[in-house]
C-alpha cells in the first residue's frame, strides 16, 4: 500500500509503501510505545488496517520539556 506518513517529533513527511502501521513505524524508526497513531484524522491502534492513500500521523507522547 502507498501511504503518506508524518513523524511529528522529527517533523518529517514521507511517502511509504508498507502493509501495516507497524511496518511504517519500523521504516521511520519509531517506537510505537512513544507515539499515538492518527489515521485520516482518527485515532487508531497499531493493528488498524491500511489502504492506498491513507494518511498516517505518528504523534509523539513524550513531553517536550
Amino acid at each position: 500500500m502507498k501511504i503518506k506518513a508524518y513523524d511529528e517529533r522529527n517533523k518529517k513527511n514521507i511517502e511509504l509503501e508498507v502493509d501495516s502501521i507497524k511496518e511504517a513505524a519500523k521504516e521511520l524508526k519509531i517506537n510505537l510505545e512513544e507515539v499515538i497513531v492518527v489515521k485520516n484524522n482518527e485515532l487508531v491502534t497499531e493493528s488498524a488496517e491500511l489502504k492506498d492513500n491513507d494518511e498516517i500521523k505518528f504523534l509523539s507522547v513524550i513531553s517536550g520539556g
Binding site: E8, R9, E33, E34, I36, L43, V61, G64
Partner: peptide, 23 residues
C-alpha cells in the same frame, strides 16, 4: 504517557509538539 496522550487527544487537549530549546 501513551494513555495520557490518548486521553488528551480525545479531549482536544493536544498542542503541536514543541520541544524546550534547552532540553
Amino acid at each position: 504517557e501513551k494513555e495520557i496522550m490518548t486521553y488528551a487527544f480525545l479531549n482536544n487537549l493536544v498542542t503541536p509538539f514543541n520541544e524546550c530549546p534547552y532540553a
